[in-house]
Design a binder for these strands. Structure first.
Lengths: 190, 190
DNA sequence: TAAATAAACAACATTGTGTAGGATATCTTT
DNA sequence: AAAGATATCCTACACAATGTTGTTTATTTA
């Protein structure tokens, strides 16, 4: 199966879109392989030529989102694990949500946050961890580094999904401003 | 179906335990009704006499956990939405995790945090919201109340599940101590 | 244009679901 | 402790969705 064959690309994209579109109406679990194929106007046996089951297709969607979020977060240059890093990180994070909003919402609406949360948790956790390991200014702290990490990881993801869901109330800049108040300045000293 | 009949009680408990035990090995979605029945040594038709599907059984488990967490959190007397409230809340939260640790772990291990997170998010979000509505000291704040709420909601749940997963490293008291540093004193003034 | 190969189509075996009826075991009540 | 009630077991069946296979048709690419 040649990944560059136009037919292959077209088929996979169609299936991808069909799944996302169905997820706006139903839970992922309620969606049958045949539903996806009907929606995509693609034969069921063709589906099985590409994916072993619907979970593999979803994994593809997730992998895709994760990859692009990871890339976005890598633009962050602050290698130390300080307030500046977290502020820059949430900025990039909110940018990404803005770009892929429709996809995030499709996944989230009928799946009780879970899947989206898992995606975000994984990627951001990874980002934070890799930043911690690069940071060599971490001696004699009052609060262990990984406690701080999990604390802000949860806080940031929670705020991000909250912002994603009711997009009208606050601007991106407001959210970042509020965070700059909620995160103390002397994060790594004391 | 008489809820007090010993046979009924026994059957339901057995099914409940069987599901939790299977969830240590597989994803919830991978578990079939027949698997649960085999594990529980209960006839499949009996299962259907009690629940319409495996989701209803899981809902029962979740309802159970939610109820007991809600009750635990209600012991919190701090009606204002301040640092003291959050500290007391996480204390009760960690108590609950300690009590029901095995159940939480069963649900969490193979289900990528999702279900557990949803449970905790729901209950704690509810608790925070009800505390906010009782608090009348919320004028002229720099950061909107619901932003603060989602921020600490995520932070607390994230830390709680982190603590749940590697239970050896930190004591409950240490976690609470660290939190008292991470949450600023003047949460509601400025 | 020819060769390669992906997509469509049809047919089938398999698996898990949900339901029903009568036989058996367990619980409740007196 | 016995009688009646009823939950569980057992078997069988209809149904839906899955996953596989072999053949034909259409599209791509060299």
């Amino acid at each position: 199966m040649n990944k560059n064959d136009l037919r292959v690309i077209k088929t996979r994209n169609t299936l991808y879109d069909a799944l996302l579109s169905l997820m706006k109406e139903k839970t992922f679990e309620e969606i049958k392989v045949s539903d996806i194929c009907n929606q995509a106007l693609i034969n069921r046996s063709t589906f099985y030529a590409h994916y072993t089951d619907k979970y593999e297709l979803l994994a593809d969607c997730i992998k895709n989102l994760k990859k692009s979020l990871t890339e976005e977060l890598e633009k962050n240059n602050n290698i130390s694990n300080t307030k500046e890093y977290y502020l820059e990180m949430i900025k990039l994070f909110l940018n990404h949500i803005e770009k892929r909003r429709e996809e995030y919402l499709s996944i989230m609406i009928n799946n009780r946050n879970s899947i989206t949360m898992d995606i975000l948790y994984d990627v951001i956790d990874q980002d934070i961890i890799s930043h911690i390991s690069k940071d060599d200014t971490l001696e004699g702290q009052t609060v262990p580094e990984n406690i701080i990490a999990k604390f802000y990881l949860g806080a940031v993801v929670s705020l991000g999904t909250f912002w994603l869901k009711d997009n009208k109330k606050y601007t991106k800049e407001e959210i970042i401003h509020y965070l700059s108040i909620l995160i103390p300045d002397e994060l790594n000293s004391k």
